[in-house]
Nucleic acid binder design. Structure first.
Lengths: 149, 149
DNA sequence: TTTTCTGCAAATGCTTTGCATGGGA
DNA sequence: TCCCATGCAAAGCATTTGCAGAAAA
């Protein structure tokens, strides 16, 4: 059975991202394409460093600044979300660029997307109780994955 | 009616924090006491900068490093929690130093603690679905408060 | 008196910026 | 050709660290 938390096919996401950039008259450079490919899959929710390493394997002269600039552009276009941590290690998700819960293993740093049907109820409960107009959320659970226990 | 999300009296929290530090043979300096007082109340969930400004009013020679060191000590002793943001602006809560949901106004930066009875169900759902052993969580909702809408 | 804490300044680590050169469209 | 993007190095910023002098206990 297909779950809501399952990843979207990377090719499909890549095409969506490319369309968005073209539509807004941004240029498709080889470096950008390489960054997009990593983020379209977003396997394990990559860090800037991991994107950089991957892109550098193909284009050795690439600078980190370019990765940061491209990621910033995609954030601005709502094509990636940023998951930030207290220790200053940011991770990204371009496969599902909308708020969704994460499950983070504190030992192996793996990040998994769980299915959480009751999350909508939570948001409703908050709105009802506080009168806030909720626009987005961040829901992360930390713990040990099955393998690390 | 008293809600779970209501703040603990600041004096009470201060005493708890002082006990913990004495118990572990840390010295109570005037600067530390001043920091503790701010964090015991944690009104609006203060930033390091705001703690610094408050302490400096009483002890003008205080350095930011001392604030950071004291906050780090309290984090280590589980007497404050850190709420980090992508833009690098960390906020702290020493009044309720255990994981709990936050409601953040994106306009006036106010942080409120809502009552969320169904949050426990969520954690259980995650454990059941994924086999993760959940140790902590972070649940933040972003939006506009009643005044800012 | 002993040991820890403070305050200063330098160092760190991630991220951003400025600018000359290069390369999409 | 015309701009935008790249790559490099310098600048920013919050936070951490090292160390000599100050002050708890």
């Amino acid at each position: 059975m297909k779950k809501r938390s399952d990843p979207v096919p990377a090719k499909q996401r890549l095409d969506q991202m490319l369309s968005k950039l073209k539509e807004h008259d941004f240029r498709i450079t080889p470096q950008r394409l390489a960054v997009l490919k990593v983020l379209a899959a977003s396997d394990g929710h990559p860090s800037v460093e991991r994107i950089y390493d991957t892109v550098k394997a193909q284009f050795p002269t690439t600078s980190v600044a370019t990765i940061y600039k491209t990621v910033a552009l995609l954030k601005q276009e709502n094509e990636v979300i940023e998951i930030s941590f207290p220790d200053g290690s940011n991770r990204y998700d371009g496969n599902k660029p909308y708020p969704h819960p994460h499950l983070i293993c504190t030992r192996c740093k793996k990040i998994v997307d769980p299915d959480l049907s009751s999350l909508e109820d939570l948001a409703k409960e908050v709105t009802k109780e506080t009168g806030f107009q909720i626009t987005t959320h961040r829901v992360d659970f930390f713990g040990l994955c099955r393998e690390c226990q």
